[in-house]
Design a protein around this nucleic acid. Structure first.
Lengths: 207, 207, 207, 207
DNA sequence: AATGAATGAGCATTCATTCAT
DNA sequence: CATGAATGAATGCTCATTCAT
């Protein structure tokens, strides 16, 4: 019932409900990121929003739904950004830098939602994970395609396994993303540089 | 009082208590790895051991203590192995391969404890994390020292940040370790090779 | 304040408010009949009317008041009909048939309100039950008087307890009334015949 | 888990668990009879037993299960008694008196469980009602068979509908059963006599 | 060494009710 | 007239923990 109304209201950018719903998702993201899904209480989320516990159910039908929406929210922009990077025509090194920059910037922009997606999504029942899985695959596919092009244009070694490298890039970025959230002092651009450098050149001195 | 007894009994390798305690830790590790600390119940752990819920308190004073012991258990061997690798005299590439092998093998040997340490340790109150932190730092320090030696012997590029690379190596290995647990089909030695290859050589074709 | 308005509007037969109020009572009756007083929610009733939950309070001051009005509504016609039957001058058998017919027809005419009165009225606090009690007594009194006349005219056995028989007749009719609601296939006139037959002649073969 | 144990323990008559479980069922019966299923709280039931609310779940897995067990408990003896009466060889009038006596005595013996069965069983989801339905049908079947024999032996009029009469008998008894519970002053044997008299002879004076 | 029984605090969720618009 | 939004108290249920046996 709320749902039907939502669709209508989401079309109007400024709708009050859509607005507060976003606030709710972001509050939930912060709390889940901090305490984990099972460790967080609906009271925590409500308090973060400055409303009463019961009122939270005006925005979410259940705690699980809140987690689901946080995860999807965390992925949405993230995948969209990757798509934009992919279509741009630029040399491989620049592309990789852009990808790492996008990934880590998302973390720094207080997007606890990404952390929640990484750490907590498996606590959702499978039926709540279909869209999340699809978005995740999209991201990996886009990344693999970039790598494939890199090989074809001769920028990348022909013997690398694009699937493996894609996963590893995501792994490194997530590890540093978590650090960026935990440690506010950590320099973003430095981290970006280090990450893409490792991915591109490895660690050995050139002989 | 149990504690004093424990110490005595742990000295005798074959003591029954020490034995069942290990079983308890491993059961707890499996359950925590599967459901997360807050998502797991003491009933789950007891069931995994085949005992009654109340009996669990013969082995752990609290659920939190169980998590603490699982995390420490996950790190112990892991750090010890790293120490052994460090003292061995071998070229850098071989050392890196040994390190990655050790890290990933620990995951594959059903050591859910490592996964628990990675994902759940932050749910422990700080005072329960002192030993865990120490073991973690030890590991990173050892790894950084290996990298430092690599630079000094000219094997590694002089411009890399050892601290950053150490964290990244751990990040990559943990990401793939999680995959190894989730996907039993995944080939261990292949994964090891891929990981160390990426760390050493990066992805660019050599010009 | 609504109350004063109500009184004014109820005087005008065709008033919109009185009309929708009736719709509200009947919606509440259906919902209470289906789910019971405590099992039904104000949301259920509002949905049955096609309005929002909050808007319900335009028609009822509280859920309890809704139950009260449903119960009274269920009894009103029912008692009025009985009164009409009583004043008619006809032989006892015909009267009994008319009474049973009236009682069961009320059930079949979708009057969930009667079911609600039977099953749920005791969940009302005593102070809300005064009118209901009065109407109920009226009905029983009228019925007892009919029986009394039956005895006096020699139609009925002199040794029956009118109070007891009145209760029993109501009991049988309510039992079959519930069946009539539950099972739409059940034939009304057949049921009426069976009931009055049992009440009049019992089950033994005449010797 | 408790369940398996239950079977074992129920075999030992005096088992502590089986004993307290019975106490629990009877407490639940009283509370449900008084406040209705939805109007009763688990706290009410626990208080009636003199234990804490949480402890109630040692005996019932859910409030619904409690209702189910109460209903089944209410029917068990009731059906068993009817079975005993049926096999006895006695004239129809005596049999009917025995049936009514059994039915109403069950009510008076504080068996709130029967009231709960009558008023609340429909709030159970169908899958929880299978056994209840079976027991109910058994009772009606036994009663119909008695009536059938009554017709065959010439005790009863040949033109009565056994199905209808069975339902009516149950209806009358339940109506008076409810009165017996509500009004402790009401004389049991008088009520029994009145009921069977009505069923057998009806109300008309014999011509 | 283990268990059955109980506890009590905590939690997600529901729901009657209110009220500004 | 009607609604969207919010409230806060209640409720069913879970679970870590305790303890006598």
């Amino acid at each position: 019932m709320r749902y039907m109304a939502t669709d209508i209201q989401q079309s109007r950018e400024g709708s009050k409900y859509a607005c507060k719903k976003l606030v709710a998702i972001e509050a939930a993201a912060r709390v889940f990121a901090d305490k984990g899904f099972h460790g967080a209480t609906t009271q925590d989320i409500a308090a973060e929003m400055g409303i009463q516990q019961g009122s939270l159910y005006y925005y979410f039908n259940s705690k699980e739904q809140a987690l689901q929406e946080v995860c999807e929210y965390g992925l949405e922009n993230y995948v969209a950004c990757m798509a934009k990077i992919c279509v741009k025509d630029q040399p491989f090194e620049a592309k990789m830098l852009a990808i790492v920059t996008s990934h880590l910037s998302h973390y720094r922009r207080q997007h606890s939602a990404m952390k929640v997606h990484n750490d907590q999504r498996l606590y959702l029942p499978v039926e709540r994970r279909v869209r999340i899985k699809k978005l995740g695959s999209q991201y990996r596919d886009l990344l693999e395609k970039v790598l494939q092009v890199g090989i074809e244009t001769g920028a990348l070694r022909a013997d690398i396994d694009t699937h493996f490298i894609a996963y590893s890039i995501i792994g490194i970025c997530n590890a540093w993303g978590a650090n960026l959230i935990r440690d506010g002092e950590l320099d973003l651009s430095e981290t970006i540089e280090h990450c893409s450098d490792l991915i591109l050149y490895g660690t050995l001195s050139i002989k």
